[in-house]
Simulated assay, not measured.
Amino acid sequence: MFYTIKAMIYQGEESGFVAECVELPVVTQGATLDDVIRNLREALALHLEGEDLQALGFVARPPISVNFEMEPIYA
């Protein structure tokens, strides 16, 4: 059973940011981090609407855990 919905955020190839869920087939994008987080919440809500979360292996009302992937800066 999954306690959280896990997602990764990384920079898009050309611009903006991409959010991709680990366990669910949900991917979205946004121009800013705030946009991509808002879009991720909306995409997850639409994807899970009417679904039985326990049948999918999640606890009721699971929180979303987000990791942000950044390029290293070298001096």
Rank of each mutant, 00 (worst) to 15 (best):
N39S: 07
Y10F: 04
A45C: 10
V26F: 04
A7D: 03
K6P: 07
E13Y: 07
M8E: 06
Y10E: 00
F17N: 11
A7S: 02
R41F: 14
M8A: 09
D35S: 06
G12A: 14
R41C: 13
L40P: 01
E14V: 12
S15F: 11
A7M: 08
L33T: 03
D34V: 09
D35W: 01
F17A: 08
N39W: 03
H47Q: 09
L40F: 12
E20F: 03
I37T: 05
G12K: 02
T4V: 11
E23T: 02
F17C: 14
G30N: 05
S15K: 09
S15Y: 10
T4S: 13
C21Q: 14
Y10P: 01
N39M: 12
C21Y: 12
E13M: 08
L44V: 02
L44P: 09
V36C: 01
A7T: 12
A43V: 00
Y10A: 03
I9G: 01
E23K: 10
A43H: 06
L48E: 14
E23P: 06
A19S: 06
A19K: 00
H47F: 13
R38L: 11
Y3C: 14
I9C: 08
V22F: 09
D34E: 11
V26P: 07
L44S: 07
V36M: 03
G30Y: 09
I9N: 00
A7C: 01
V27G: 01
L33H: 13
V26W: 07
A45P: 14
C21W: 05
I9Q: 00
L44T: 09
L33G: 04
V36P: 00
L44Y: 01
R41W: 15
I37D: 13
T32S: 05
V27H: 00
V27R: 03
S15A: 11
E20P: 05
G12S: 12
I37C: 11
A43R: 01
V36H: 00
E20V: 07
D35P: 00
L40E: 12
V26N: 02
T28V: 01
Q11R: 12
I5C: 08
V27D: 00
Q11K: 09
L48D: 15
V36F: 06
A45S: 14
G12D: 03
T28K: 02
R38P: 10
V22T: 07
P25S: 06
E23L: 04
S15I: 08
V18N: 04
K6D: 02
A7G: 00
L46G: 14
M8W: 02
G12E: 10
T4C: 06
N39D: 06
L48V: 11
G16F: 00
D34F: 06
E42W: 13
R41M: 13
R38Y: 15
I37Q: 13
Y10Q: 02
Y3K: 15
E14C: 07
C21E: 15
Y10K: 03
E13I: 09
R41I: 08
P25T: 01
P25A: 04
I5S: 12
L24K: 01
L48Q: 12
A45I: 11
